[in-house]
């Protein structure tokens, strides 16, 4: 589902804005420079980075490492360094979340369809699928991964935030201390404060409904990520089920906030904390207070 579209670039006041689409999301790069060639280079780095991460880790393709892992039918798969790092990071998140977060939980989507309807799967269906869920059932001995047949991994929960930080880092490596914003569908990293110390103003969609304000955050440096999506839910028995599933039960997290936005040093950390917070359900706020980060809950 890679949609490599043309890159649009334009000058806006005192910086360049580049737009493209990656990971089915509108993406934007803001670069503090007057030089069009520098802006074009930064935009090309960011878009190529996002597209290549999408190609490499999308579960919708049949020519990448994720596909090889998911179709290995119990055979061990030797993975490259980048994939290994992502698996290590997922492993850390699973431990930090008390196994609520799990990259093998994607198969539960076969049971749950979050389209605003009231279709709730039977417990039998969930139990059946849960046989294929659980990071503890996976043998991960770097660089070798071995899963039971029928199990699948999905980097959907961390891939976009990782791509944001990776793109920002590549821009820094090639172009030096240039102030830029990388925004992939609302997950954002700002590298280096602007020359005059002013903040970049980045819009974060706080609620899906029009009219509710898009929260604007003034960011000098750091990462912002939002988890939860008020557009994807189920309504049944008068209860609203979020699309975030608890990997331990196979059920949506009860009483989860609609969305959690976190500001942290990197977009990856912000994304991890916002996801872990949602998995805490009603305790999301308390959890985030304990992490001493700036956050916004809807």
């Amino acid at each position: 589902m890679v949609t490599e579209q043309s890159l649009e670039i334009m000058y806006s006041g005192d910086h360049w804005v580049a737009r493209f689409t990656a990971m089915a999301s509108p993406c934007e790069v803001l670069i503090e420079t007057r030089e069009e060639c520098i802006a074009r280079r930064a935009a090309a780095i960011a878009s190529q980075c996002a597209w290549s991460i999408e190609r490499k880790f999308s579960r919708y393709r049949d020519d990448n490492i994720v596909h090889r892992i998911n179709t290995a039918s119990g055979a061990p798969v030797v993975v490259d360094e980048e994939t290994a790092k992502l698996l290590d990071f997922s492993d850390a998140l699973t431990h930090m979340s008390g196994s609520r977060f799990d990259i093998t939980s994607g198969v539960l989507r076969r049971a749950w369809t979050f389209d605003g309807s009231d279709r709730i799967p039977s417990q039998e269906t969930i139990d059946e699928i849960l046989r294929y869920v659980g990071w503890h059932k996976v043998r991960w001995e770097r660089p070798r991964l071995r899963m039971r047949p029928g199990m699948e991994i999905d980097f959907g929960g961390i891939g976009k935030e990782y791509a944001v930080d990776a793109a920002a880092r590549l821009i820094e490596i090639e172009l030096g201390r240039i102030s830029c914003v990388v925004n992939l569908g609302g997950d954002i990293a700002v590298r280096h404060p602007r020359a005059d110390g002013a903040a970049w103003r980045v819009g974060v969609e706080a609620a899906a409904a029009p009219g509710s304000p898009i929260r604007t955050i003034g960011l000098r440096q750091g990462g912002v990520a939002t988890s939860g999506d008020s557009r994807r839910f189920l309504l049944a028995n008068g209860r609203r089920y979020s699309h975030i599933l608890d990997a331990r039960t196979g059920w949506p997290v009860p009483d989860a906030p609609r969305s959690v936005t976190v500001l942290a040093d990197t977009c990856t950390q912000a994304g991890a904390l916002s996801t872990l917070a949602i998995l805490q359900g009603a305790n999301a706020r308390q959890f985030l207070i304990g992490q001493r980060v700036k956050f916004w809950i809807q």
């Binding site: 880092r169 000098r220 750091g222 500001l263 700036k294």
Partner: peptide, 9 residues
């Protein structure tokens, strides 16, 4: 090499 987050608090 990731600097600390800073917003316009």
């Amino acid at each position: 090499g990731n600097a600390s987050a800073a917003d316009d608090e």
